[in-house]
Write a protein that binds this DNA or RNA. Structure first.
Length: 691
DNA sequence: CTCCGTGCTGTTTTT
DNA sequence: CAGCACGGAG
């Protein structure tokens, strides 16, 4: 790492406002650095300061690689670094040139991989027009391969396509042999090892021949590139590599970091082993625990001063995580005195929980807390269904993170598939999808047409002579014309291409969907969005790799400037904070999820997840658990269960909480019938409101 | 071959 | 109540 000496007064300006530990982290020298940063200790801020410090000390911004967990985090980081640099530049003549759009390489492992492979892929035999399969595409491809090999037709039932992909992905990301993964994670599929092996070979071959990459390939090929003779060309690009949320990286990602900076110089990893919640994606806290062994001469710095939460909230969250066997010991403290103990609220059922949460939210808003400063968190996306319904009914605007994503909706995928096919005519997943939109064209014909296209080296002219079924004789030439135009269009004009595709697609969508108008409106939004891009491949990649945040950009109720409540899965809430946080369905079965109680490790992860949820709160924390809950999915009708409060708040921790009932206990006697009556009344009101 | 109706099954978190 | 697999009609 080539850092020139940094002037003390410049350093002082960079570090303004940091505490001593943060300061040490931000201005650390070239040796490998691990920052163990507890929740709310200013991790993001410290990392931003470190980036600014590196730039101020002479490293060119585009020689810094900043790997974050989400695109949102990347954007936030960039904003802060820019602000810092602006502050530093004041009165300094040497710096302004580095300022204008400090182009730090940033993004998720996956999106950075896509960009690097676009440039260097040829060196390892990858054409730059490769396209990327999202999760659903990958599953569908797995399914096609399974049918191809006639698996699951021998009487025994074969694992589902999603399960197959999970197994495959787990092997790749954990870098472990199939047997190990089957034995430890998917024991009920042990019998299928041989067939799975065949399936995975077929899957891999198909992807290769079609020049399509799945999520895992992006990491795999990035590592392969670094491991190849061309690896130096990638290594030479970067002087510094910083990785956020290191506790949630997997073996493959750790390999990539090590290959980027083999001796560890210039590596900065930030993370908190107490917040590791992605082991289902093969993330392993061994990466953070063993970082010092992997990189000799590592400096470990710990951030323990919490700036986020009040003392009572921190007392509770510290106690929750104390029960865990975390390895990097740290005790968070704060000087934010005062504030109330977090609330532990018992509700009779989900209706009561919903009402309670909404009342509190509105109450806080009365006191001046905007909806945006409050969030409701839950374990699984569907846990918020009842709440969403009631919020809509009461016209309380909200926005939900996690769960179904905008770009995964059928019509959005349809539209982007036109561009994907134009970008890479071998992309059979995009091709099959687009072709089957045409009436009279099903899987068989579509497959034949894609084969023909491949034989013609991707020249769409080969489709001109094909005679479609009667119903589509008119549509077909338009379609072929569209594809030819898209293929020859300058790749820069993304929104024009989207427009052309939309015009063709609109009538098909109208036939296909009963709510076509709404869907077509979405597509206009996509088109607008396309105008922000000047590169089709980049557009398509971001579309699949950075999907979640796109929803935040526009796919919401038309209230973007207005105030709205945040609903989020706990996983999607990572790294965020709100003044008031409501953790709902915090009852055994949901937290921890009964599907995740197979082993002690899994339960520990659920505990950390609960910890992550609670540590999002600055001033007000509510943990709610309905006694009676609707066990979604276990058959319909009246499958209600009686839930224990979450085991992560055992009796010993109760003094740290203010316990209450959602309704006064005096109602107990008549509450049962009263509650039910209230429900039926509400249903009737709802029906009346419909006319 | 496509398309549509019927019946079975299965459930988390995300790049 | 889905989303998917399978069977039969056109």
């Amino acid at each position: 790492m080539t850092t020139s000496q940094i002037a003390p007064e410049v350093a002082e300006r960079v570090h303004e406002g940091l505490n001593p530990a943060q300061r040490a982290a931000a201005s650390h020298g070239a040796g490998p650095l691990l920052i163990v940063a507890g929740a709310g200790t200013g991790k993001t801020n410290t990392l931003a300061h470190r980036v600014a410090y590196l730039i101020a000390s002479g490293i060119t911004p585009n020689r810094i690689l900043l790997l974050t967990f989400t695109r949102r985090a990347a954007g936030e980081m960039k904003r802060r670094v820019d602000a810092l640099l602006r502050r530093v530049a004041t009165g300094d003549e040497r710096l302004p040139e580095t300022l204008s759009g400090a182009k730090v390489w940033g993004g998720t492992f996956h999106s950075v991989a896509a960009r690097l492979l676009r440039v260097h892929g040829r060196d390892i035999g990858l054409e730059p027009n490769f396209t990327i399969l999202d999760r659903a595409d990958a599953e569908d491809l797995m399914h096609l391969c399974r049918t191809e090999l006639a698996l699951g037709k021998q009487g025994r039932r074969f694992p589902q396509k999603g399960t197959c992909l999970d197994i495959y992905s787990r092997c790749v990301n954990a870098q472990l042999p199939l047997e190990d993964i089957l034995r430890t994670v998917f024991p009920w599929c042990k019998e299928d090892a041989e067939d799975l092996r065949r399936l995975f070979v077929e899957y891999t071959d198909t992807k290769e021949s079609r020049q399509i990459l799945d999520y895992d390939d992006l990491l795999l090929f990035w590592r392969g590139l670094l491991d190849s003779p061309a690896g130096d060309r990638v290594r030479e690009r970067f002087d510094a590599v910083l990785i956020d949320e290191y506790q949630d990286t997997n073996a493959l990602q750790a390999d990539i970091v090590a290959l980027l900076r083999p001796d560890g110089t210039g590596v900065t990893a930030v993370g908190d082993d107490a917040q590791a919640v992605y082991s289902f994606r093969a993330a392993t806290i061994r990466n953070i625990l063993e970082f010092p062994q992997r990189f000799e001469g590592t400096t470990v710095l710990t951030l323990e001063q919490n700036y986020r939460s009040t003392q009572p909230v921190l007392d509770a969250t510290n106690a929750i995580i104390a029960a865990s066997s975390q390895r990097y010991d740290k005790t968070l403290w704060t000087d934010r005195d005062g504030g109330a103990r977090p609330a532990l609220v018992t509700c009779r059922d989900e209706v009561e929980q919903t009402d309670y949460v909404i009342e509190r939210i509105l109450g806080h808003r009365e006191e001046g807390l905007a909806l945006k400063q409050q969030a409701v968190l839950f374990r699984a996306a569907h846990h918020s269904a009842a709440l969403e319904l009631e919020l809509s009914r009461r016209n309380i605007p909200f926005y939900k993170y996690g769960g179904l994503k905008f770009v995964e909706m059928a019509h959005v995928k349809d539209l982007s598939s036109f561009l994907r096919l134009a970008e890479n005519p071998l992309d059979s997943m995009a091709g099959l999808r687009v072709l089957q939109l045409i009436p009279g064209v099903g899987p068989r014909i579509a497959a034949a047409l894609m084969d023909a296209l491949r034989d013609a080296n991707g020249d769409f002219d080969t489709w001109v002579s094909w005679r479609p079924p009667e119903i589509s004789v008119k549509t077909w030439p338009d379609f072929v014309g569209l594809m030819r135009n898209l293929a020859h269009a300058p790749s820069t004009d993304v929104s024009a291409q989207l427009h052309a595709a939309r015009i063709f697609y609109a009538p098909l969508a109208e036939q296909r969907y009963d709510n076509a108008a709404a869907r077509l409106a979405d597509l206009e939004q996509i088109e607008m969005l396309g105008s922000r891009f000047n590169d089709r491949a980049r557009f398509l990649a971001e579309m699949t790799l950075d999907a979640p945040n796109w929803t935040g950009d526009f796919a919401q109720p038309p209230t973007l400037d207005e105030d709205f409540l945040i609903l989020s899965t706990i996983h999607s809430a990572k790294g965020l904070e709100w003044d008031a946080v409501y953790v709902i369905h915090a009852a055994d079965g949901n937290i921890p999820a009964d599907l995740a109680c197979g082993s002690a490790e899994e339960i520990e992860e659920e505990r950390r997840l609960f910890y992550v949820a609670c540590t999002r709160a600055k001033d007000h924390l509510y943990v709610l658990h309905p006694l009676r809950y609707y066990a979604a999915g276990r058959g319909f009708s009246d499958r209600y269960g009686y839930a224990q409060r979450t085991r992560f708040v055992p009796d010993t921790l109760r003094p740290l909480f203010a316990e209450s009932q959602a309704r006064p206990t005096s109602d107990e006697a008549d509450a049962e019938s009263g509650g039910i009556e209230a429900t039926t009344t509400r249903i009737r009101e709802g029906i009346k409101a419909m006319w």
